[in-house]
Design a protein around this nucleic acid. Structure first.
Lengths: 149, 149
DNA sequence: TTTAAAGAGGAGTTACATATCTACAAGTAG
DNA sequence: CTACTTGTAGATATGTAACTCCTCTTTAAA
């Protein structure tokens, strides 16, 4: 039902970067401010994506982060696999360590297709698509400021 | 993607109790052993269900816990609402606090039907149904012992 | 060359879910 | 009544995700 905060921040950040003209370096500070998330923590998440070869980073003045070529077309699942375990879509709803078609918990049969639908969405959506969705103005990336709630 | 451990233990426990003849009191100790979960922690979870009027408890010899009348026909959602917040099915995949049809994150449209399918399963399944499923022998409640993996 | 601005990396802190411990209250059986 | 067995309640401990801080290196502008 939930992705880790790190994953959520990562997806938000790559969408925001995909909204920039290709090759634009964006500061961690600016990403954090626009997404309204803690900057030092976001930095760690971005560093993990750099190590996963999803982002370029550049130090010093005019530094920052930007998507590697083609990453705007990479599906979200590829990005999440760098942050969650390799089999985070395998989780059993009841928490059993071993829950497969052969040895299944009593709700496995109903849970499995739902898991698969989510996995399908994550394999379908990309930073580029979602960036375009945000640009239409119908969707938004960050929480609204308190004044608007 | 995940229920809290407390919720997972709760569901497992009510299924196990639903497998007993109606009105049978079961010891916390025996539930914990059969489910292979920590007994003191399970006790806390069961106490919460007692406070939620889902279980009877009885102290002293021949004591234990048993389902209140009709609880074997109560859907899992009702049970979970006592342990997770009232709106745990509302969660935004990206973690936004406010994510509704009107102010939506870019993946809201794809995530919403999946959330609803899970909610539907949780409102359809009951301890009684799942207990019968386990009794067929095709499904199991607890993790297999190490010797079987 | 100096200086400021950025990311990198590691250690430390906090908050919360999970798990445990201890003392107690309530019930049962003899 | 006494002894034993069970759940109850509150305090405490542990583990982990989330978050912060400090120092270092790299880069580029002045």
């Amino acid at each position: 039902m939930i992705l880790s905060r790190a994953s959520q921040y990562a997806i938000q950040a790559v969408i925001l970067m995909a909204m920039q003209p290709q090759g634009t370096f964006v500061l961690n500070r600016d990403l954090a401010e626009q997404l309204n998330v803690p900057a030092p923590y976001l930095a760690k998440v971005l560093q993990a994506l750099v190590r996963g070869n999803l982002l370029y980073s550049s130090r010093g003045r005019n530094g920052g982060f930007c998507l590697r070529e083609g990453v705007e077309k990479v599906d979200l699942m590829q990005i999440l696999l760098h942050l969650e375990g390799p089999q985070f879509t395998d989780a059993c709803l009841l928490g059993l360590k071993e829950c497969t078609d052969e040895t299944a918990c009593p709700i496995h049969k109903q849970w499995k297709p739902i898991k698969h639908k989510l996995a399908r969405v994550l394999r379908t959506e990309t930073p580029g698509k979602l960036a375009r969705a945000v640009k239409t103005g119908k969707y938004r990336l960050a929480d609204l400021p308190m004044s608007m709630l």
